[in-house]
Each structure stands twice: as C-alpha cells, then as structure tokens.
C-alpha cells in the first residue's frame, strides 16, 4: 500500500540530489524538495505501521525504510554540518536504500505479525538505537571516503573540519551501538533469562564495538588510519546487518 508513496518520495529525493549539482540553486528550494520527500517517506512508514500493527523496524524491508529516513532527517536538520558538495552522496545512499527496499521480493515485504519475543517495549529502544548508530556510521564513512580521496589527490591538504566531523559521527555511532548492546542485553534477560547467548548477531555486534574501540585507541591517530578504520567498521556492520541475517540462524533470524 505504501509503495506508490515511496516511489513519489524517491522521485523527490532524486530531484534534491540533482539540485546539489547546480551551484546557484537556492537552499530554500532544496529544503522544500527534501521536506516533501521526507513527509512522503514518513507517511509511507505510518501506513506500513498501521498495516502491520507495530512500528516499522522488525525486518529488512522496514529497517531499510527507517535507515534512509533517519539519514534524510539528519541531512535536513543538521544541514550545516554537511558541505554542499557531499549532500548528493548522502542522497545517493538514501536513494539506494529506498530503491533496494522497493525492489525487494514480496516475501520480504509481506506484513507479518510480531513474534512473541518482539512484543516488548524494549524493541522501541534497542532497534532504533542501532539504526541511529548505523546512520551516524554511514555519515562517518562518507567523511572517511572523502578524506582518503583528498589525501590521494593532495597529501598535504588540511582537512581538519572533515576530520572533526568524522570524529563526531564515529562518537555518535559508538554511543548508539553501545546503547543498542546494553538495551539488547536487558531485553534478552527479560525475554529469555539470558543477557548474552553468543548469538551470531550479538557476537558480530560486539566485534563492531571492538573495531570502533580501536578508533579511540590508536597510538598514532593519523587521518589515513582513522579513515581506513571507519571503512573497516562499516564493512563489519554491513556484514552484521545483512550477512549474519542471511548466512547464520540464531535468535535474531527474524531480522
């Protein structure tokens, strides 16, 4: 039911991305287009929530919608943090997530009732925490990739503001991933009597924390090392988010 609205939202994200390439385009027009896209996106998510009778973050399709929505919100409400020449990249990622969600097989999109274990208030803290973290990590990755490209083109270039922004995003990501981990443990204890079961998803979530801890414990935190670590973290998180879901079975198989 929400598909036509998502397609409309996707179109507006595309227009916003195109506007990024016009240097003389008005900020007001960009924000207006983004506002329409976000409102349509939100309406689609609300329709989905009503159809499934719970907030839309219990399967891959719904979490793709959520992640792209969080990225869009961040782009609009903290737009000063993002140089104009990077906005198109963020929009490209939003577009990719939404498009992937739209073309997923129907079996991934079929509304399914909540499993008994998911019927808990902790779901509304644990899952969004992780996706706030993933959102920040994606933004951190964009800065990391940009820094590496700049270094490759001009090794002497001073990109302090980009480095500071990357640091901020990684701190946000680390914080929210830890919130997700702790609240997940509390929820698991309430549901199953065991706060840690070495489930593949849990184990990989811990691996992500360790890799990110490296970021804060580099003896020589050069820009290149930090940027490479961010990329490694992102790859690990992608494996946690997608690889673990499809390769391993476990307590989080429904995700």
């Amino acid at each position: 039911m929400e598909t036509p609205i998502l397609i409309l939202s996707l179109s507006f994200y595309f227009i916003a991305a195109v506007l990024c390439f016009f240097k003389k385009s008005s900020e007001k027009i960009f924000l207006s287009v983004m506002a329409v896209a976000i409102v349509l996106h939100l309406i689609a998510m609300i329709i989905r929530s009503v159809a499934v009778l719970h907030p839309p973050f219990t399967n891959l399709y719904e979490t793709f919608l959520l992640l792209s929505f969080l990225l869009a919100l961040r782009l609009v409400f903290w737009k000063r943090q993002f140089p104009k020449n990077l906005r198109w990249l963020i929009l490209a990622i939003i577009y990719l997530f939404l498009l992937t969600a739209l073309v997923m097989p129907t079996s991934y999109k079929m509304p399914k009732p909540l499993m008994p274990a998911l019927n808990s208030a902790w779901m509304y803290i644990h899952v969004p925490s992780y996706f706030f973290g993933y959102m920040a990590l994606i933004l951190g990755f964009i800065y990391a990739a940009t820094l590496l490209v700049h270094r490759w083109k001009n090794p002497e270039r001073d990109d302090l503001s980009l480095v500071n922004r990357m640091d901020t995003e990684i701190k946000i990501a680390f914080l929210f991933l830890n919130i997700g981990l702790v609240t997940g443990g509390i929820w698991a204890y309430r549901s199953w009597g065991n706060y840690w079961a070495w489930d593949p998803k849990e184990t990989w979530a811990l691996i992500n924390i360790f890799i990110m801890a490296f970021y804060f414990h580099l003896d020589k935190p050069t820009v290149t090392r930090k940027a490479v670590l961010v990329i490694l973290v992102l790859l690990s998180v992608i494996f946690t988010y997608l690889g673990v879901t499809f390769i391993f079975s476990g307590l989080h198989s429904y995700a």
Binding site: T203, W204, F210
Partner: peptide
C-alpha cells in the same frame, strides 16, 4: 585477537 577469533567462531 578477540575480533578474529570471535568472527571465525561464528
């Protein structure tokens, strides 16, 4: 070491 062993053990 923990990262590698944990990852491999999954």
């Amino acid at each position: 070491v923990l990262i590698l062993l944990l990852a491999a053990s999954t």
